[in-house]
Design a binder for these strands. Sequence first.
DNA 1: ATGTAC
Length: 471
Amino acid sequence: MLASQFVNRGRNRWEYPREGRMQVPVRLYLPDHWLETVDDESIQQLLDAAELAGTTEVFGLPDIHSGYGLPIGGVLATEAPLGVISAGAVGMDINCGVRLLRSNMVVSELNKESLRTILGTIEQRIPAGIGKDTIHKELQGKIAKNVVEQGVQALSELDMLWDFDLPRIEDQGCFPGGSLDAVSKKAKERFNQLGTIGGGNHFIELQEVVEVHDTKAADVFGLFLGQLVVMLHSGSRGFGQQVCTDYSRLMLEAQKKYGLEIGNKGLAAVPLFSEEGQRYWQAMAAAANYAYANRQVMTYDIRTSIEQVMGKSAKELGLSLVFDVAHNLARMEEHEGKELIVHRKGSIRALPPEHQSNPDIYRKTGHPVFVPGSMGTSSYVLTGLPSNKETLHSINHGAGRIMSRTQARKGISSKQLKDSMKGIVSSKHALKSLDEAPAAYKDIDAVIETLVEIGFTRHVAKLRPIGVIKG
DNA sequence: ATGTAC
C-alpha cells in the first residue's frame, strides 16, 4: 500500500517524501480515514508526475481517483521556461467544466408538471449520451474557425450569447491562441457535437438553493434561498478527446529527442516552449474554446426550452449566467514570482477575494466555483480563500469515485440506484447509469468539508437536485 | 472522458 508511505503534515495534509528521481515531494489533501482508500494506481501516477522535468508541485485533492496519466483530482505544476506540458495531465476532456444559470423563479411556486415539461423540452433539444451530434446544423463548416479562435464570441452572430454572459465565463469564454491549424483532420471531423451534453458524469440538473452560508457573496452571485437554478456539466466532447489522443501519441515520440522519457505513457510530455509544446497549446486552446462554446450553445437551448414552457422571455425569467468554470485545463500562471505551467485535472482554479485575475464583477468576493456531487446528491457554490495559495488556488472538482465504473455496474443494483433518486425527476438514462450511482462516489459533504476545514475554500450556497438529465 | 481498439 503506497498510501501508508505518506507522512502527516497537519490537518488533512499528507506528504510522500522525495525519493529516487522525484524532483519534489508529493502531497495529498485528505481526512485521515480516507488516506487508506486511495488506490496505489493514483498514487503511482502522482509519483511519476514528480519525475517530470521542471516539476515544482504535484498533489492530489480530496476527490482523487486514477485517470489517464495523472489522476483526476490532481494538480501538476512545472516551471517555465524549461518545464514540460503533458496532454495526458490536462485530460481527455479538455476544458470539461461546470456552469450555473440562475433564475427569478422559486421552486416551491412551480408545479411538478412544469418541471417535468421543462426537463422533457431540454431533452428534446440537447442530445445526451456518447456519440450524439448537434441539432444545430448552422454550427458546422465555416464557423469552426471562429469558434476555436474566439470561443463563445463566435456565437453572438447567431444570437446564442448575451453581452451579460461574457464576464461570467472564465477567460471570458475565450482561451487565447486557439488554432484549427494545430488540430488533426480526424479531430475536425468530430466538430459536430457543439450543443451536446455527452456521457459519463456529464449532466444537466434543475436544482434548488437549499442553504445560503454567505449572504453577501450569494447576493453578488444573484442567488437566494428557494431559487430554481440550472447546472450544466460538459466539455469538449469527441473534439477534445481526439486532440488529447493525437497529442499524447505525438508527445510519446517527441519526448525522446528532449531526453524526457518516463515510464508512464499517459504522462508523455514535451517542453512547453518547444515546437510540439506550442502546437499542443494551440490545439488545447482550440478545444478549450470548443468546450466554452458547447456550454454556451446548451445555455441557449436551456433558455429557449424554459421560455417555451413558462411563456415568458429568458430575460424576464432572469435566466442569466452565474459563472462557468473549467476543471480540465493547463494555464500559465505567476506564483510567487515564478512562471508556472499549471495542469489542473479534475481540479478547479478558485481565486481568492481581491486576486487580480478575478473578473471585475467578482473581484471583492472571489469568483464562484461549482462542485457537483454525484447524481442525486447536493452540489456546492464556493469561493477561494487566500490560504489556498498552497494549492496554487486549486480545489477539487467533485466528489470523487470510490468504485470504478466496472465495480459499480457489478456491485450496485438498479433498485439501490432508484431508491437514491427518490423525489428527483430523472431521465431514463439517469436511472440506468449504475456506474454514476451515488454509492460509487464519496460523500460530497465530507469532501467539501476537507478543504473548508483547512481554510482553502468558503461555503456560499448548497444546491439540491430536483431534476436530472444524464447521457 | 471517448464513434470505449493498434
